[in-house]
Simulated scan of single mutants.
Amino acid sequence: MNDPTTGPGVIDVDIDRDVAVLTLRRPDKLNALDVATRVQLAQALREHGTGETARGIVLTGEGRAFSAGQDLRRTPTTEAEFLEEFASFHDITRAILETRVPVVAAVNGIAVGGASEITLCCDARIGTPATVYYQPENGRGITISNASSVLLRRLVGNHAMRIVLGSPRIGAEEALRIGLIDEVVEPEALVDRAIETVHAWTPESNTTALHLTLLRPLAEEVEAAFAREDVAAKASWESGVFTAGVAGFWTTKETTS
């Protein structure tokens, strides 16, 4: 079913075998995330994360991309808008970590920047041979968000430094090896496998909600990461690095297209 609270054509919510499958449906824009979409996503996560309507959540994208991350066609023009951008990314992390059900990222294709960071707070990440992680922020004047400054290290340890500073494209095989994803399956099996994972983690008479609280990062640690990331983001804005980086991205894109 299409959930009317998320708006048509942006985020679809389907209940499949008691699991809420949230699909980013903006394939013509590689499922890029503007502020409105991020707000809708956080709302959908909270609505279906209580355990009352679904036993788990699967987050995926339509088409060849999981998501291209921040929609650079809608860049902020004021500091207030810029901070709102970051706040809306952070709130998706909060929404996921507050759920009482497992959240599984079904990473169907390339996951860029903030979108790749969203998957880091999910309880599992399942990919396909087409899965690619790419964090280009360092060369675009943008700083990382979503508490990824702690979540990325939590998953991949010292690999976090080269992933952020070097911005390599990390394919499925390497992502599996270093811990960015937990499993690789064929594309046609991706969502089914994610749903199966939710079912396996929510047996009858379970204590899953309690274990999620014990195994997920502490809220205090996440909020402290948000605060540090906000300081870094503000510095990038005030220095002009952010504006110059985004402008340089579009210049490069126009000359190579």
Rank of each mutant, 00 (worst) to 15 (best):
194 A>R: 10
182 D>E: 05
117 E>A: 11
161 M>V: 08
161 M>Q: 12
156 V>F: 04
158 N>K: 13
119 T>Q: 03
170 I>W: 09
166 G>Y: 01
179 G>E: 05
182 D>A: 09
179 G>M: 02
189 A>H: 13
159 H>S: 10
127 G>F: 03
147 A>H: 05
183 E>Q: 10
140 R>Q: 15
136 P>A: 03
135 Q>G: 12
149 S>C: 02
183 E>S: 07
194 A>Q: 02
148 S>E: 05
132 V>P: 01
178 I>R: 03
121 C>G: 15
181 I>Y: 00
173 E>M: 09
125 R>G: 02
180 L>D: 04
136 P>V: 00
150 V>T: 01
196 E>K: 13
186 E>F: 11
181 I>H: 06
175 A>R: 08
151 L>Y: 09
184 V>C: 10
117 E>H: 02
123 D>W: 12
163 I>Y: 01
127 G>I: 06
144 I>G: 08
121 C>V: 14
136 P>S: 02
149 S>P: 09
191 V>C: 13
153 R>A: 12
120 L>C: 05
181 I>M: 01
155 L>A: 07
147 A>M: 01
126 I>C: 01
147 A>G: 14
190 L>N: 05
144 I>H: 01
185 V>C: 11
148 S>W: 01
159 H>T: 06
191 V>W: 04
121 C>K: 03
166 G>F: 00
163 I>G: 09
193 R>P: 07
148 S>H: 06
138 N>T: 06
167 S>Q: 15
201 W>R: 15
192 D>M: 13
143 T>D: 15
150 V>I: 14
132 V>I: 13
177 R>E: 15
152 L>E: 05
120 L>P: 11
159 H>E: 13
141 G>Y: 13
132 V>C: 12
144 I>M: 04
145 S>A: 06
177 R>C: 10
150 V>P: 01
182 D>I: 01
135 Q>S: 09
197 T>R: 15
134 Y>S: 02
150 V>Q: 04
150 V>M: 06
124 A>H: 11
147 A>W: 00
160 A>G: 05
199 H>V: 11
164 V>E: 12
140 R>C: 13
150 V>S: 00
197 T>H: 15
153 R>M: 03
156 V>D: 02
140 R>N: 11
162 R>S: 03
130 A>I: 04
134 Y>C: 03
141 G>R: 06
164 V>W: 00
126 I>T: 05
162 R>Q: 06
181 I>T: 01
167 S>D: 07
131 T>N: 02
188 E>N: 13
190 L>D: 04
136 P>L: 00
